[in-house]
Amino acid sequence: MSRIGKKPVAIPAGVSADIANGVLTVKGPKGTLTLTLVDDISYAVEGETILVKPANDSRTARAFWGMQRTLVSNLVTGVTEGYSKTLLITGVGYRAMAQGKNLKLQLGYSHDVDYAVPEGIEIKTPDNTTVEISGIDKQKVGQVAAEIRRWRKPEPYKGKGIKYRGEFIFRKEGKKK
């Protein structure tokens, strides 16, 4: 039995949920998100909650149960509050600057890195070493943050690179003389 799957997902005021043609659509103040439903799981919108239960007693139904409930919960949270991640840039000469729908990164390469921001994602640079990524889709926000971080991962000796806010970088001791 899934402890997470048993909990119903509460629908706050101002949010509507609808199931049609195997797709769950959640509309809220920040936008609309959809989720393709899995056949082994049954979904029901009852009043102010969404219930997620296994449709049968198969192994795959039990395996998907908790994950599908979490995905439904992420939709509701996304259309009400949204998601955000913050990246911190450390290193001499490393900078970031948001320019419309592009993010310009100077990361010590011979050229600047221009990252095209996908639709539905908003990027802000409050200062030149901080990048704030926000949007309503949790997966998209995390993917964009990972793609930006991939350009220069933090290294363990000086800590230079792009890291998530709150991330611990294990530091190594340098060469001894």
Score class of each variant (00 low, 15 high):
2 S>K: 08
4 I>P: 02
4 I>N: 06
6 K>M: 13
9 V>F: 01
9 V>N: 00
9 V>P: 00
10 A>K: 14
10 A>H: 12
10 A>D: 13
11 I>S: 00
12 P>M: 04
12 P>S: 09
12 P>E: 06
12 P>K: 11
13 A>D: 14
15 V>W: 01
15 V>P: 01
15 V>S: 02
16 S>H: 05
16 S>W: 03
18 D>V: 09
24 L>I: 08
26 V>S: 02
27 K>W: 03
27 K>D: 11
28 G>P: 02
30 K>M: 12
33 L>I: 06
34 T>A: 07
38 V>E: 08
39 D>L: 08
40 D>V: 14
41 I>P: 00
42 S>D: 12
43 Y>N: 03
43 Y>C: 05
45 V>I: 14
45 V>L: 06
46 E>S: 15
46 E>G: 04
48 E>K: 15
48 E>V: 06
48 E>H: 08
48 E>N: 15
49 T>A: 06
50 I>Y: 02
52 V>P: 00
53 K>C: 06
55 A>W: 04
55 A>C: 07
59 R>H: 12
59 R>S: 13
59 R>E: 15
59 R>Q: 13
61 A>D: 09
64 F>H: 10
65 W>N: 03
66 G>W: 01
67 M>D: 07
82 G>H: 03
82 G>S: 07
82 G>P: 03
83 Y>K: 08
89 I>T: 03
90 T>F: 08
91 G>P: 03
91 G>F: 02
91 G>M: 05
94 Y>F: 15
94 Y>Q: 08
96 A>S: 10
97 M>Y: 06
100 G>N: 11
101 K>F: 10
104 K>E: 07
104 K>V: 15
106 Q>M: 11
109 Y>T: 11
111 H>A: 09
111 H>R: 11
111 H>Q: 12
114 D>L: 15
